[in-house]
């Protein structure tokens, strides 16, 4: 297209600004958004911020093992203490956060793409395709999420990729169902009939015409589900079934530290646990606020 569309982009900018202003109407949500932003900042710049690289054996002294928070060890100052091997809890938590967030984002995005495509295809093709896909969704939704994830890990084994696949398997159903409902509403609108009459191809109508009009509920689910995804990954890692030992996420850190809880070294488990708790909480508040803003009926209450 040769026409430039400055007007459209300006509209987007205005819409975003108006959206942010509406979001900021709830102070708790704004605080949580700031918190999430802070988490992302720490995760992205973990290698720069962290005083120690927990993977680098040269930086670790065994003599620094099990130091409580705010103690000066042989190699450096341990602001949040150290673990049984002398690794800095603060650095470990930063790297764990980085891994947790990466895995969560990749698997949630994957679930969104896969689930939305499945839901849209089912709605557009209808008939038995719709029946089969949506009944599979029903079966997945009727089982506890963690059970499905465990099943996938049991079949495929541990590892980063397999954890992502397991979480995707748990999550895609939410997007498929929402997409199916939204698309079913759009499909009978006249503009879709008009597109069919114009002779446009099925994929073009599905992804070029129907999909853009169904995205709002999908993004809301993404925002709401992101917190759960982090929690599922943490649960798997805590059970020792998620990420490998070489890439400890927040969940693995909690698991590693728990054996020392009774001997008084509370910081090894509690600090990553608290970081995780706050992250999931903040993400849920942010997701819920976005959900409310998207639904004018909820807003009025």
């Amino acid at each position: 297209m040769t026409f430039p569309l400055p007007q459209a982009t300006r509209q987007w900018k205005e819409k975003l600004q108006a959206g942010f202003r509406a979001f900021a109407g709830d102070k708790t949500a704004l605080a949580c958004l700031t918190l999430v932003g802070g988490y992302v900042f720490f995760a992205v710049f973990a290698p720069i911020i962290a005083p120690q690289d927990p993977q680098d054996l040269a930086q670790i002294e065994l003599i620094d093992a099990r130091l409580p928070p705010l103690s000066l060890g042989a190699s450096s100052f341990f602001i949040l203490g150290s673990d049984a091997l002398g690794r800095d809890i603060f650095s470990m938590t930063l790297y764990g956060l980085r891994i947790s967030l990466t895995v969560a984002l990749i698997s949630a995005t994957g679930a969104l793409v896969f689930g939305a495509a499945a839901g849209l295809t089912a709605a557009y093709l209808g008939g038995w395709v719709n029946a089969v896909i949506m009944r599979v969704v029903d079966i997945f939704l009727s089982l506890p999420a963690i059970l499905i994830a465990l099943l996938f890990i049991a079949v495929f084994g541990r590892g980063v990729e397999n954890t992502i696949i397991a979480i995707l398997a748990v999550q895609w159903t939410h997007y498929a169902r929402a997409m199916n409902a939204a698309a079913a509403g759009e499909i009978n609108k006249d503009y879709v009939l008009a597109a069919k009459l114009l002779g446009l191809s099925k994929p073009r109508i599905m992804f070029g015409h129907i999909l853009p009009n169904c995205l709002a509920p999908i993004f809301v689910i993404f925002a709401v589900q992101l917190g759960y995804v982090i929690a599922i990954e943490a649960s798997l890692s805590f059970l020792g079934l998620g990420l490998p030992v070489t890439q400890p996420s927040l969940g693995s850190l909690v698991a590693d530290g728990q054996e020392f809880l009774l001997s008084g070294a509370y910081w090894m488990s509690l600090i990553p646990g608290f970081v995780l708790l706050l992250l999931v909480f903040a993400m849920n508040v942010v997701g819920d606020r976005i959900r409310v803003l998207q639904n004018p009926q909820l807003q009025r209450r």
């Binding site: 297209m1 026409f3 569309l5 459209a8 609108k189 006249d190 503009y191 009939l193 008009a194 597109a195 009459l197 114009l198 002779g199 446009l200 073009r204 070029g208 015409h209 853009p212 009009n213």
Partner: peptide
């Protein structure tokens, strides 16, 4: 059918154009 020889104009003008596409796209896409 391939030539899309039959076209339709619908009752509700607000629902018969895709709200997310520019008029140019509506007229040139097909």
């Amino acid at each position: 059918h391939e030539r899309s020889s039959v076209q339709m104009v619908f009752q509700n003008p607000y629902a018969s154009l895709n709200p997310r596409h520019t008029v140019l796209r509506q007229l040139t896409e097909a």
